[in-house]
Deep mutational scan, measured.
Amino acid sequence: QYKLILNGKTLKGETTTEAVDAATAEKVFKQYANDNGVDGEWTYDDATKTFTVTEKPEVIDASELTPAVTTYKLVINGKTLKGETTTKAVDAETAEKAFKQYANDNGVDGVWTYDDATKTFTVTEMVTEVPGDAPTEPEKPEASIPLVPLTPATPIAKDDAKKDDTKKEDAKKPEAKKDDAKKAETLPTTGEGSNPFFTAAALAVMAGAGALAVASKRKED
């Protein structure tokens, strides 16, 4: 009698068979294992007439167990938060979910874009303008004329002030004479000065007065 010990991944146990020799028993056991989907390494112990079949655990490639991950970057252009961060993800969709959660946790809500070549996400917050509040242009400074500094008044001594007054009066006198001369030139000519009769009478009076003066002097002599 021969014995078979099964150490399979899905089947474990023992069974026996009657055979004329070990070779015949081995054929029977291998057919049995094959029928039950057991495929492994076989050993035989002649002392105990025991066969053992052991399935090795399937070696799984690490790449099959853990999907390949890629590093993705997020650029934040927020109104109050600006910067960059990264995450590792199996695909862009997974990275996007992580980045949007990160942005939401930090109060950033804007327009999202993605560049597959650089594996970069960008979120930009738009500045909202309040309706009716149009931007006002800064007032242009008016052209200013530079002020001319005033010349301080120079105090005048009393004596100098009197001299100035005297000079002013002396300066006025010639001007007054000139005014009188002008008035004389502009006076109208009277009839006496221009009538020949009056001129002859005046000469006769003057001659008579002269003769009287000569006669009076002779009497005195």
Results as ranks from 00 to 15, higher is better:
Q1V: 11
Q1P: 13
Q1F: 14
Q1N: 11
Q1S: 12
Y2K: 03
Y2T: 04
Y2F: 10
Y2E: 01
Y2I: 05
Y2R: 03
K3A: 08
K3G: 07
K3M: 09
K3Q: 09
K3L: 13
L4T: 07
L4W: 02
L4M: 06
L4A: 07
L4G: 05
L4Q: 04
L4K: 02
L4N: 06
I5E: 11
I5W: 12
I5P: 00
I5L: 13
I5Y: 13
I5A: 08
I5T: 10
L6F: 06
L6A: 09
L6E: 03
L6Q: 04
L6N: 04
L6T: 09
N7G: 09
N7K: 12
N7W: 12
N7T: 08
N7I: 09
G8M: 04
G8A: 08
G8D: 03
G8P: 05
G8H: 04
G8T: 05
K9G: 08
K9F: 10
K9R: 14
K9W: 11
K9N: 11
K9I: 10
K9C: 10
T10Q: 06
T10Y: 06
T10W: 06
T10C: 06
T10N: 06
T10K: 06
L11R: 04
L11P: 03
L11D: 03
L11S: 04
L11F: 06
L11I: 06
L11H: 04
K12N: 11
K12S: 14
K12M: 09
K12W: 15
K12D: 07
G13R: 04
G13W: 05
G13Q: 04
G13K: 03
G13H: 04
G13C: 05
E14S: 14
E14F: 12
E14W: 13
E14D: 07
E14Q: 13
E14G: 07
E14P: 04
E14L: 10
T15V: 08
T15N: 06
T15P: 06
T15G: 07
T15Y: 06
T15C: 07
T16V: 08
T16F: 11
T16C: 11
T16A: 12
T16K: 10
T17E: 05
T17L: 07
T17A: 11
T17P: 02
T17M: 06
T17W: 10
T17Y: 10
T17I: 09
T17H: 10
E18S: 13
E18Q: 14
E18D: 12
E18L: 14
E18I: 14
E18K: 14
E18H: 14
A19S: 11
A19T: 11
A19I: 06
A19V: 10
A19K: 14
A19F: 05
A19E: 06
A19D: 05
V20P: 09
V20C: 11
V20S: 10
V20I: 11
V20Y: 13
V20Q: 10
V20A: 10
D21V: 14
D21K: 10
D21G: 14
D21F: 13
D21T: 13
A22E: 05
A22N: 07
A22S: 09
A22K: 03
A22C: 06
A22F: 01
A22Q: 03
A22R: 03
A22W: 01
A23F: 15
A23N: 15
A23K: 04
A23R: 07
A23M: 15
A23H: 15
A23W: 15
A23D: 10
T24G: 09
T24I: 14
T24S: 14
T24Q: 14
T24R: 15
T24P: 12
A25N: 02
A25F: 01
A25H: 01
A25V: 05
A25K: 01
A25R: 01
E26L: 00
E26H: 00
E26P: 00
E26R: 00
K27T: 03
K27L: 04
K27N: 02
K27D: 01
K27Q: 03
K27H: 03
K27I: 05
V28G: 10
V28I: 12
V28P: 03
V28Q: 13
F29A: 04
F29G: 02
F29C: 07
F29D: 00
F29N: 04
F29E: 01
F29R: 01
F29M: 08
K30C: 01
K30H: 00
K30M: 02
K30E: 00
K30I: 00
K30L: 01
K30W: 01
K30F: 00
K30P: 00
Q31W: 05
Q31A: 08
Q31F: 05
Q31V: 06
Q31K: 12
Q31T: 08
Q31S: 09
Y32R: 05
Y32T: 04
Y32S: 04
Y32K: 05
Y32G: 05
A33C: 10
A33K: 00
A33L: 02
A33P: 00
A33R: 02
A33Y: 02
A33W: 01
A33S: 08
A33F: 02
N34S: 02
N34I: 02
N34L: 01
N34H: 02
N34D: 01
D35S: 15
D35M: 13
D35G: 15
D35H: 11
D35P: 02
D35E: 11
D35T: 13
N36R: 04
N36Y: 03
N36L: 05
N36P: 01
N36I: 06
N36E: 04
N36S: 07
G37E: 06
G37V: 06
G37H: 07
G37Q: 07
G37L: 07
G37Y: 07
V38C: 04
V38M: 10
V38F: 05
V38R: 02
V38T: 04
V38S: 02
V38G: 01
D39C: 14
D39T: 10
D39H: 15
D39W: 15
D39I: 14
G40N: 01
G40H: 00
G40L: 01
G40W: 01
G40A: 03
E41A: 14
E41C: 14
E41M: 15
E41R: 15
E41G: 14
W42K: 00
W42S: 00
W42H: 00
W42E: 00
W42L: 00
W42D: 00
W42F: 02
W42M: 00
T43K: 12
T43C: 10
T43A: 14
T43E: 10
T43I: 07
T43P: 01
Y44C: 04
Y44Q: 02
Y44H: 05
Y44V: 03
Y44T: 02
Y44E: 02
D45S: 13
D45Y: 10
D45H: 12
D45I: 12
D45Q: 12
D46L: 14
D46N: 14
D46W: 15
D46G: 14
A47D: 11
A47G: 12
A47K: 13
A47L: 13
A47S: 12
A47E: 11
A47Y: 12
T48W: 12
T48S: 12
T48I: 13
T48E: 11
T48D: 10
K49T: 10
K49M: 08
K49E: 10
K49P: 06
K49C: 10
T50S: 09
T50F: 14
T50L: 15
T50C: 11
T50N: 13
T50D: 12
T50Q: 15
F51S: 01
F51W: 01
F51A: 02
F51C: 02
T52A: 10
T52G: 15
T52W: 10
T52H: 08
T52Q: 10
T52V: 10
T52I: 08
T52P: 01
V53K: 01
V53G: 05
V53Q: 03
V53E: 02
V53S: 06
V53N: 04
V53W: 07
V53P: 01
T54S: 09
T54K: 09
T54I: 07
T54N: 07
T54Q: 08
E55D: 04
E55N: 04
E55H: 05
E55S: 06
E55T: 06
E55P: 04
E55C: 04
